[in-house]
Design a protein around this nucleic acid. Structure first.
Length: 495
RNA sequence: GGGCCGUUAGCUCAAUUGGCAGAGCAGUGGACUCUUAAUCCAUUGGUUGAAGGUUCGAUUCCUUCACGGCCCA
């Protein structure tokens, strides 16, 4: 960091700001624009210059000065606003005395307001012939270089405002994120789901197998945990009679960071009574297919050099089937027998604890050998009961649950199941989790007595699902890292 | 937590075997009334991420640390 040089550039701009202060109000807020760049291009982009000159269109535009090309007594400038860019054309003789001279002293990055009439240049670019122009906000810090823009990843994440000024790809990514969330809301609202908000601070962190962040409430003199999932609260609402509910909000998990993990991330969770996990697979398939069509215009999503077809029916297979399919050397006996399965896991280099049952061992083998290779949209079903403490047992095979996870590009995007609404079974599962917690598993669940009490009032047969919004946005925006789809991703403090 | 890679001017990047730290853009001064990364002339700007070591001499080699990236757990 060469503070001296930065100071020289900033100091120069600060002198200009001081001159503005001496000349009057340096930070005026009385300019009202009546046009934005994108709409001007949409409305007048097709018109010939003769048409524009014949019936002059007067506009007021405002935005950030992104380019300045001075050629003696005439200049071009690019103004960037929330919708795009529009070119300004300034002539010394077309402006009040002194204004052109002042303009020449303004810097890239300054916020400008201008008024003039629309026309097209010799090369046919729609522009504003400026008649009045003034500076609305002085920018004190130089922007990155105009051609290469801002490339440094760290700066893009730490100073997202600069990234957004400079990189259209980033601007589009977060617009797409907003459209995805809006699409989901409309999709669920149209189907009579009720959007709700449940506690982010919970006395008993539940609904997932993960380590929570803890905090402390002074007045109540009690520990609280940031939620790892809203699940148990949403199901209380189903007990209460809201038979279709959803929440799109942040979860917090006290785990490591990676290109796929941020300590706080956004989940959609939704619950619907009187349907089962197969209905939710159908819904998920339709939701994603429709979303791809409506937001990208195609049912094929291109991401990181791969192509994913959401148009054709999604593949469905059980955990067990998928292990056998991706491990030709394994027989059914190898993964159905606890001793053999442990040996297989050992050969794969998976650390297997004594406390693991067969289901847990199978899931470890699945995660190691299958998950990352599930490229095409795929539902994996029949997760072992041992690793699914909130899911309903399968009627034919109580070793597994009526549960699925959904994968694309080797990444888990969704997790859903028929809900366990047998209060006595749930209580037993909680007790099992507490035993694992007592045995040292920091991720195991607590016993939530109030949740059991809620189930004892009777929860209708229900299915529920969670969809990771960040990963979904990564897929739809061709982003390699979760940090590219979080406006302000978690980083270590700057040194 | 482990392995590998990176950090040089405001930004994007160079720097031969260890031998005077450079360019473009931005900035500054000047020319220029249709530019598009405008052009032309001149010019300012550096604690090479930090600390230590080896050396006559370190951006370059070694150690530790910080931050980031990729892979693994």
């Amino acid at each position: 960091m060469s503070d001296q040089e930065e100071h020289a550039l900033i100091a120069r701009r600060r002198e200009k700001l001081n001159a503005l202060r001496e000349a009057g109000r340096a930070f005026p807020n009385d300019f009202r624009r009546d046009a934005i760049a994108g709409e001007l291009h949409a409305e007048y982009g097709d018109r010939d210059n003769e048409v524009l000159e014949a019936s002059p269109v007067r506009v007021k535009v405002a935005g950030r000065l992104m380019a300045k090309r001075v050629m003696g007594k005439a200049s071009f400038a690019q103004l960037q606003d929330m919708s795009g860019r529009i070119q300004l054309f300034l002539q010394r003789d077309g402006l009040e005395d002194g204004v052109y001279q002042a303009f020449k002293g303004w810097d890239i990055g300054d916020i400008i307001g201008a008024e003039g009439v629309m026309f097209k240049t010799k090369t046919g670019e729609l522009s504003v012939r400026v008649e009045t122009i003034r500076i609305l906000t002085k920018s004190l810090r130089p922007l990155p270089e105009k051609f290469h823009g801002l490339a440094d990843q760290e700066t893009r994440y730490r100073q997202r405002y600069v990234d957004l000024i400079m990189n259209e790809v980033s601007r589009n990514t977060f617009r797409m994120r907003s459209r995805i969330v809006q699409f989901i809301r409309e999709y669920l609202n149209d189907r009579d789901f009720l959007e709700v908000e449940t506690p982010m601070m919970q006395a008993i962190p539940g609904g997932a197998v993960a380590r929570p962040f803890s905090t402390y409430h002074n007045a109540l003199d009690m520990d609280l945990f940031l939620r790892i999932a809203p699940e148990l609260y949403l199901k209380r609402l189903v007990v209460g009679g809201y038979e279709k509910v959803y929440e799109i909000n942040r979860n917090f998990r006290n785990e490591g960071l990676s290109t796929r993990h941020n300590p706080e991330f956004t989940m959609l969770e939704f619950y619907q009574a009187y349907v089962d996990y197969r209905d939710l697979m159908d819904l998920t398939e339709d939701l994603l297919r429709t979303m791809a069509e409506q937001l990208t215009g195609s049912t094929t999503i291109e991401c990181q050099g791969a192509s994913y077809d959401f148009g054709k029916p999604f593949r469905r297979m059980t955990v067990r089937e998928s292990i056998l399919a991706f491990n030709p050397g394994l027989s059914a006996a190898d993964i159905d027998d606890p001793g053999k399965a442990r040996a297989v896991a050992g050969q794969l280099g998976i650390p297997v604890k004594d406390s693991y049952g067969l289901g847990k061992v199978q899931i470890e083998i699945f995660e190691k050998t299958v998950e990352g290779r599930l490229a095409d949209p795929t539902f994996i079903t029949a997760y072992p009961t041992e690793v699914s403490p909130l899911a309903r047992r399968n009627d034919d095979d109580p070793f597994v649950t009526d549960r699925f996870e959904f994968f694309v590009g080797g990444r888990e995007l969704a997790n859903g199941f028929s809900e366990l609404n047998d209060a006595e079974d749930q209580a037993e599962r909680f007790r099992q989790q507490v035993a694992e917690k007592d045995a040292g598993d920091l991720e195991a669940m607590h016993y939530d007595a109030d949740y059991i009490r809620a189930l004892e009032h009777g929860m209708p047969p229900t299915a529920g699902e969670g969809i990771g919004i960040d990963r979904l946005v990564m897929l739809f925006t061709d982003s390699p890292s979760i940090r590219d789809v979080l406006l302000f991703p978690h980083l270590r403090p700057e040194s």
